[in-house]
Design a protein around this nucleic acid. Structure first.
Length: 111
DNA sequence: CCTGTGACCGGTA
DNA sequence: ATACCGGCCACAG
């Protein structure tokens, strides 16, 4: 009488889905928050994606730095430490970052 | 229960 | 191109 947990679309599971999607972004590739939300099956949860990434421990293996906003930029103020962190990580992966904006050549990733 | 917040997004001016 | 605005929805207090 367990009925399987297939109909468990709770947020806890969505959280895991999101993390998996983010984790599946290839090296040197970029995806937007909205894109992650869509691939997770919840198009209107772009903000939630950010909320999830925020809670990640600093020592995570999740490539959070490969996630940016729909304007193609880093969603941190330029003076923020996280901004520096994300920018340098992207540069390390060969992603072209100009003034906080990512070059369109890095887009085009799909699940 | 109600209110404010946010690593967002798309439309409009 | 930038600026503003309303919608969105989980979460914290």
């Amino acid at each position: 009488m367990n009925k399987t947990m297939s109909q468990k679309s709770n947020t806890a599971e969505l959280k895991l889905i999101i993390l998996q999607v983010v984790a599946s972004i290839p090296f040197g590739q970029i995806a937007s928050y909205g894109q992650i939300a869509r691939l997770s099956g919840c198009p209107s949860h772009a903000r939630f994606v950010g909320a999830v990434l925020k809670k990640l421990p600093s020592k995570t293996s999740i490539p959070w730095h490969r996630v940016i906003n729909s304007k193609g930029g880093i969603s941190f103020p330029v003076d923020n430490e996280s901004f520096i962190e994300q920018k340098s990580r992207l540069l390390q992966e060969g992603v072209e970052v100009k003034n906080g904006k990512i070059s369109l050549s890095s887009f085009g990733w799909s699940a």
